[in-house]
C-alpha cells in the first residue's frame, strides 16, 4: 500500500499533466467525482453532514483492521471530485498516518484557485472531520 506522500505525489503528477487550463482541470475533477463509490443510503443522515461546506457533504468512516475506510458523497460533482482526492490519500490508512498527514498536494495542485476562497473553508472542514474520525479511532485503540 502506497504511503500518504506517495499518493499525494501521484496526484500532483496527474494535475501537472493537465497544465494551467482551468477548464480541463475542472472537467477532470468532475470525472473523478463520478467514480466515487456509491454512498450507503442508511448513512445519508444529518449527523453525517459536514458543517461549513456550501455544498452538501456526507462523510462516514469505518474501522477495518486498524485502518480507516472513508465513505463520502456530495450533491455537487466538483465537491465529489475533491472528496475523492482526499479519500484516495487518506482512506485505508492507520489513524496515526491520517493524523500526521501533511496534505501538501492541496496547495501544489492549486486547489484554492480551483474551488475559490469561499469554498476552501468547506475543504478545511472535510479534512478536519476526517482527522477527527482518526483521532476517535486512535483513542478507542489506546483505551
Amino acid at each position: 500500500m502506497s504511503s500518504v506522500n506517495d499518493i499525494q505525489n501521484e496526484i500532483i503528477e496527474e494535475f501537472n499533466i493537465l497544465g494551467d487550463d482551468k477548464e480541463s482541470t475542472i472537467f477532470y475533477i468532475m470525472e473523478l467525482g463520478g467514480k466515487l463509490p456509491d454512498f450507503p443510503e442508511n448513512e445519508r443522515i444529518d449527523s453525517n453532514i459536514i458543517k461549513g461546506c456550501q455544498s452538501k457533504v456526507w462523510l462516514t468512516a469505518k474501522d477495518d483492521n486498524d485502518q480507516i475506510e472513508f465513505l463520502a458523497d456530495s450533491n455537487t460533482d466538483i465537491t465529489k471530485g475533491l472528496i475523492s482526492l482526499l479519500i484516495r490519500v487518506l482512506s485505508g490508512k492507520k489513524p496515526k498516518e491520517i493524523l500526521d498527514a501533511d496534505l501538501f498536494f492541496i496547495d501544489k495542485i492549486g486547489m484554492g484557485n480551483i474551488i475559490g476562497s469561499q469554498r476552501s473553508n468547506g475543504l478545511a472542514a472535510m479534512i478536519k472531520q476526517m482527522k477527527l474520525y482518526a483521532l476517535a479511532y486512535q483513542t478507542k485503540q489506546n483505551a
Binding site: 482551468k22 475542472i26 472537467f27 455544498s55 460533482d77 466538483i78
Partner: peptide
C-alpha cells in the same frame, strides 16, 4: 447537474 458545478465550469471559461 448542480447549479454550483455549472457556475464553476462557466467561471473556468
Amino acid at each position: 447537474m448542480h447549479p454550483f458545478d455549472v457556475g464553476v465550469m462557466l467561471d473556468a471559461t
